Amino acid sequence: MRLSSMADYAVVTMSAAARHCGGSRVSAAQLAEETGLPVPTVQKLVSRLTAAGLLRSSRGVGGGLKLARPAAAITLADIIEAVEGPIALTPCVDDARHECSLDASCAVKPHWGVVGAALRGALADVPLTRLAATAQATETGR
């Protein structure tokens, strides 16, 4: 399993935003500069992360971005789902999608939901505070 580049970049962007969580707001351009990501990519991610309720954006003097809730209350699962949608290893767990020719007779299909729930649970156990602290320690050489 591998995350898409956008999901990876969303985690990097949210980690950078979390390091500003002391109440100060940050711009998408600042996040781009801090992360090394292109500004248009960060702007696209900020839009998705805001729509998902992970970031809050305000305009005008003193405006900018800040976490919509405490970093400890945002998980890796939340960030990935904001960009990728629900976490699932195979499309067959979504009853609305029928992309597999084995769908009607697959003996494994009933088990994918359990596997997906375990994966989501593992990702939900990683709070943004841990990701931001790890990134900060790496940057400072700790």
Rank of each mutant, 00 (worst) to 15 (best):
H98D: 12
A88W: 00
G62H: 09
G60S: 15
G60Q: 15
E99Y: 01
T90V: 15
S58E: 15
A72L: 08
G116V: 08
P91K: 10
D94V: 03
D95H: 09
R69D: 03
E84H: 00
L67F: 12
D78P: 08
V61H: 11
D103N: 08
V93K: 10
P91I: 02
L67E: 04
L102V: 01
L65R: 10
K109A: 13
L76I: 01
C106G: 06
L102P: 01
G113C: 01
I80V: 15
V61Q: 11
I79T: 04
R69M: 14
P110C: 07
S58W: 07
E84S: 15
I74H: 01
A71R: 10
A77N: 03
D103I: 09
H98G: 11
V108M: 14
A107E: 15
P70I: 05
G113L: 09
A68K: 02
A72M: 05
A96N: 08
D95T: 06
R97M: 12
I80D: 01
S58C: 11
R59L: 15
E84T: 03
S58R: 15
R69S: 13
R97P: 01
V114H: 10
L76G: 00
R97V: 13
E84Q: 14
T90N: 11
V61C: 06
A73I: 05
A68Q: 08
I80Y: 01
G62T: 09
P91L: 07
L119N: 00
A72N: 04
D78M: 11
L102I: 00
A104G: 05
A117K: 05
A104R: 12
A107V: 15
G60K: 14
S58A: 15
T90F: 09
G63R: 12
R97K: 13
A96R: 14
D94A: 08
E99Q: 07
W112V: 01
D95Q: 06
A73F: 11
R69F: 05
C100D: 10
V115I: 14
I87V: 15
V93Y: 06
W112F: 14
G113D: 06
G60D: 14
T90C: 12
A73H: 13
C100Y: 12
L119C: 06
G60E: 13
L119F: 03
G64K: 04
D94Y: 09
A77P: 05
A117I: 01
C106P: 08
A96S: 13
S101P: 08
S58Q: 14
V83I: 13
V83M: 12
A88N: 06
P91N: 09
K109R: 14
K109Y: 00
G85C: 03
